[in-house]
Each structure stands twice: as C-alpha cells, then as structure tokens.
C-alpha cells in the first residue's frame, strides 16, 4: 500500500490512520483495504476499527499489549500497523457488495422533497431521477447503529442540513445533507432533508447481522410506489 498515510494518537488507547483529507472513492478504497487487512488478522488486542471517509481509527487494549510485549503499546501498535499495511497491494481491488435499496419518494413520506425541488429549480421527478441515477459508496457508518453515510450526490442536489432539526424522523427515512445521502436506521431526531423512505429495515437488533449496510457497500436506490412501500414494509 502506498505510504501516503500518517498514524497519530487518538487518545491513549487508539491511533488514527489518515490519508489525504478528501471525500473521494480512490481515498476510501485505501481506507477499506487497510480496514479489511487489519480486520482479517482477528487480533484480540485490537478492540475496534472505525473506517471513515479518509481515515481508519484503530482502538487497542494498551494494557494487554503492554502485558505481552513489556514495552509501551503506542509505539508498538504504530509499527505493527505500518508493517501490516505494507503487505496490502495497491493494485488488488477490494470486493464490495452491491445493494439495491427500494425507496418510496411519495410526498407523504418525503417532507422536504417539494421544498428542495423548488429551491433547486427542478421538478420533483427530476430530483428523484438525479437521486436514483448514480451508485453511491457507503463511506462510513456512524451517528446511529447502521446509519450509512453515502456520497457523493449530484452537485445539483447538495443541500445544507435543516436550520431547525426535527425532533423525530421515522426509521427508513432517506435524506440529503451537504453532498451526502443517508438513511435513518432508527427513529431519531435529525437535520437531514428527507426526500423519501425505504421499507427495508436497516437495523434489526434481533438479526444475526443487525446492520443492513456495511462500510464500502455500493448502493443504488430503486424508486417504488407507495403501494409497494406498504407491501414491503416489515412489522417492527
């Protein structure tokens, strides 16, 4: 893997690997390669990995490392990460899943659709076409369990968060914030512009894999009618 990353402390039991700070697929690909590399090692002293747009946080059990190697953990883990990432090739492609997520853009489920279309000087149909035209990368899961941060949306759709966040947004709501699009996995307060809703459950604590999306997934939205939405909606 090319060496254009830095490793700096994130407190005393984590380090953060950072690549060039921009939101771009080729940067994120490096993040995901590093994530899969370290995850595949299944090391007990690495307690968590948090991949994001252009960084990977590596949380470690400093006491366990110290116990084992009898010297400071931080310097050791940084060396360990550098050595491990050297094994990762630049050319190999990571296998990412492709997901098609049905979304109903009916106004009853999309409180910000018509306002956003007006602001952007386009019809609601044109807005929906733009939103469904491209494949998005899940850059990061954060904010809530299973909340996918996807990008980038067409520049014509980019829109700041609501000035006054809503106190409750239903689970499955699809929103736009800046150049990102995302889906609320749980009912939650939030400030994204809501343009639709998916009947898919993005988070189900009783499932073997509680989260529907994973970092690195390639997502395409498929428009569905209100009738299909209610047919597909699973009882929660």
């Amino acid at each position: 893997m090319n060496t254009t990353f830095s490793i700096t402390p994130l407190g005393d039991n984590a380090v953060i690997i950072e690549w060039e700070q921009q939101i771009a697929p080729h940067i994120h690909e490096q993040v995901m390669k590093a994530f899969h590399c370290l995850q595949s090692l299944k090391l007990s002293f690495i307690t968590d990995l948090i991949p994001a747009y252009a960084s990977l946080a590596v949380l470690y059990d400093a006491a366990a490392i110290r116990q084992k190697i009898n010297r400071p953990a931080r310097a050791w883990i940084s060396d360990f990460i550098k050595r491990s990432l050297q094994q990762v090739t630049d050319t190999g492609t990571t296998v990412s899943r492709s997901l098609q997520i049905p979304v109903c853009y009916h106004p009853s489920l999309a409180p910000d659709l018509s306002v956003l279309a007006q602001q952007k000087g386009m019809s609601e149909a044109a807005l929906i076409t733009l939103h469904t035209a491209q494949t998005y990368t899940v850059y990061m899961i954060g904010f809530l369990p299973g909340f996918p941060y996807m990008g980038k949306v067409d520049a014509r759709l980019a829109s700041p968060r609501l000035k006054q966040p809503r106190t409750a947004i239903p689970a499955g709501s699809v929103g736009i914030a800046g150049e990102q699009t995302g889906i609320y996995p749980l009912s939650s307060p939030g400030g994204w512009n809501i343009i639709g809703q998916t009947p898919i459950r993005l988070f189900d604590p009783s499932a073997q894999d509680p989260c529907y999306c994973r970092p690195g997934d390639q997502v395409q939205f498929v428009p569905i009618t209100l009738e299909t939405f209610y047919q597909m909606q699973q009882p929660s």
């Binding site: 407190g11 948090i50 994001a52």
Partner: peptide, 28 residues
Amino acid sequence: ISAGVTRGTIQLLPNGHLIILMADHQTT
C-alpha cells in the same frame, strides 16, 4: 471530514465550548 472518535475525546463545538465524549458516545 468525519472520522472515528473515542471515549474521552474532547471536541470543540462551533460555539467555542467543549464536550467530552462518555460511554454512549457516537462512533464518529
């Protein structure tokens, strides 16, 4: 650009005030 955070991280909010992340903090 959003990135992973950890417990104990002290974030600076836009109003100049600080928040220390505790047990139920968000991951990013």
